Simulated assay, not measured.
Amino acid sequence: MSLSPGSRILFVTDTWRPQINGVVTVIEHLKEEIERRGMVVDVLDPSQFLTVPFPLYTEFRLALFSWRNIRRRIKDGAYDEVNIHTYGPMAWYARAACIRLNKRFTMTFHNQIHLYAEVRFGTWARKLVEKLIYYFYSPAALTLVTTRSAQKQLLGFGLTRVSVWPLGVDKQFFTRGVCPRVFEKPVFVFLGRIAPEKNIEEFLSAELPGTKIVIGDGPDKKKLESQYPDVVFLGYQTRERLVSWMCCADVLVMPSRTDTFGLVIVEALALGIPVAAHSETGPKDIIHNGVNGYLDEDIVRAAKQCLSLSPDRCRDSVKNYTWSKSAETFLSVLQSARGTAP
């Protein structure tokens, strides 16, 4: 059976509103675009169950006791596709339920959790989690990744059914607004979660002229605010407010080495803001040196070089990253995998 108007799709995620992160953004846009095509999209998320806080990040809630309800939802939901987005208890329960019910399912690879583990615990943890990634994803009919680099990485882990599905950027980012405040120029911005895996301290300690701004929140925010009093911390911003504050930027600095795509990269480029980053999965799939940013081990050098780049060329480089095209590709790769479940 092909995916068509009336088809039913279930997204399973361990992260959902009020959390603000890339996974939530992706699911929201996919759901909207797929429903425009006449399909039914349900989201199974922690808010529907009793939860407990995750010790490392207390804002994340874990649905530890949801196994039976998840199995029932999958069994009784008459879904044509079950797509699992995360690594938490709900993802594991949904995976187990589909296997027991002999129901095909697909998965998406959003976070390089093996690199998160290395940042926090060392090389031994990364190697262990790489093996867990293979175990976790291998039963899926298809694993979707957002870049060629991520696909190559998962194939290197031993997975065989991996397809690329690029993300999109909200159309509001293609209209540049006005910065709400006057800052000393040039303005360098970090946008993302304030946590060790984002390598934010490389940005905060960088010797850059002008002003450094951090947009986002996370477990390290209070500590880093006190350590770096000359940096402007704006906290979480969304929608029009986010666009306005981003319009203050001359350069987006992305020091993270653990992203799979870096949604903030295409959002910045859509606003005509060049990006300085390391040559890692995500940035190296989007950034072209001298066109829309610079990739360099020296993040300061990359950031300064970005000041000479054309905003128009930055915007042009991501004009094809739309959520409509992203949804079309998502449905297309799901359709191509139908009938291939192990």
Rank of each mutant, 00 (worst) to 15 (best):
P196K: 08
L242Q: 11
L191I: 15
L234G: 00
G192F: 00
C247E: 10
P229A: 08
L234D: 02
Y236N: 15
A195Q: 13
K198G: 07
E207M: 07
A195F: 08
A249C: 13
L224I: 04
V253F: 09
W245A: 03
E197N: 09
T211S: 14
P229N: 11
R241N: 12
A195M: 10
F190C: 07
A195C: 12
V243P: 09
S256F: 12
P209D: 03
F203T: 01
D217A: 11
I213V: 15
L191T: 11
F190K: 04
C247Q: 11
K221T: 02
D220C: 09
G218I: 01
P255I: 02
G218D: 11
C248D: 03
K221Q: 06
V232Q: 08
L252H: 04
V214E: 03
E202L: 14
P219W: 06
F203W: 06
R241M: 12
C247A: 15
P219H: 08
I194S: 02
E202N: 12
E225A: 04
K223T: 05
N199Q: 14
L242T: 08
T238D: 11
L242G: 12
I215F: 13
D217P: 10
D217C: 06
A206P: 10
D220P: 07
G218V: 03
G192A: 03
C247R: 05
W245C: 06
T238G: 10
L204E: 09
T238P: 05
A249S: 14
V232P: 08
P209N: 08
A195H: 13
E207W: 10
K223L: 06
T258K: 15
G192M: 04
I200E: 07
R257W: 08
G235T: 07
L252T: 05
T258N: 12
R193K: 15
Q227K: 15
Q227E: 15
G218Y: 12
R257I: 03
E202P: 04
G192H: 01
S226Y: 06
L204C: 10
V189K: 11
G192P: 00
T258Q: 14
I215M: 13
V243H: 11
K222H: 08
C248W: 01
V253C: 09
S205C: 04
